[in-house]
């Protein structure tokens, strides 16, 4: 298991990419591997790499699913679907097309929105994607808290985007959240908020611009 995975083990990836993996790594050493190195190990059916990746991201996946679904049970179902898919079909992650966290969040969002639409709960549920984040008795850790599961870079980027998000005018932030967490199109947002379509487009454009600038300033 030591050394970099061989290119033959990298399926469905356009070109072979080698990721650093500690030489002579011990079992516990996987916790120091990059996401991409863990995914390559999972391609080789490394159960411990899967466990490490699960522990690293389960809270983020659960939090995103909960933000969309507003229900702990459904969010747990989504977590299960996402990670089982990751284990069974790791080749669907293509490293050249973006970072692992982007892919993981995209898969999580689509799965949670599928569940939301299937249940037809979008307009009926209290809070959730169309409201503010639902408070519950579960412990909630805000992004400002130390997060041992995230890399330092990711933690800093999260903090930067969080600051940028908090600095957005409420209507811009609302439009972004309705699109991303509510799964609504611009026309659906316009109808929901009783605003012209052009206004919604402008809010989303300005919101994304400001988030991007906030992230660039961080860099």
């Amino acid at each position: 298991m030591d050394g970099n995975p061989t290119p033959a083990g990298i399926r469905n990836i356009d070109r072979a990419v080698e990721f650093p993996r500690p030489a002579g790594a011990e079992l516990a050493g996987r916790t120091e591997w990059t996401d991409e190195a863990l995914m390559l190990a999972i391609l080789e059916r490394d159960q411990h790499a899967f466990a490490v990746l699960y522990d690293r991201y389960v809270d983020l996946v659960y939090s995103a699913a909960y933000r969309i679904l507003g229900d702990a049970g459904l969010a747990e179902d989504t977590v299960q679907d996402v990670f089982v898919r990751l284990w069974r079909r790791p080749e669907t992650f293509i490293a050249e097309r973006g970072r692992f966290i982007s892919w993981l969040m995209s898969v999580t969002r689509h799965r949670a929105l599928d569940e939301l639409r299937a249940r037809g709960r979008r307009w009926k549920r209290e809070g959730g994607p169309l409201g503010d984040p639902v408070e519950s008795a579960e412990p909630v850790f805000h992004p400002g808290d130390p997060d041992p599961s995230a890399s330092a870079e990711l933690a800093e980027e999260r903090a930067a985007v969080r600051r940028a998000l908090e600095s957005l005018p409420a209507d811009q932030r609302r439009a972004l959240e309705l699109a991303y967490f509510g799964g609504l199109t611009q026309q659906e947002i316009a109808a929901y908020l009783h605003e012209p379509l052009g206004t919604i487009k402008t809010r989303i454009r300005l919101g994304m611009q400001k988030l991007r600038r906030g992230l660039e300033r961080h860099r």
Partner: peptide, 9 residues
């Protein structure tokens, strides 16, 4: 997505 408040699974 990941900038939302984090909940422990």
């Amino acid at each position: 997505a990941v900038s939302q408040p984090v909940r422990r699974a």
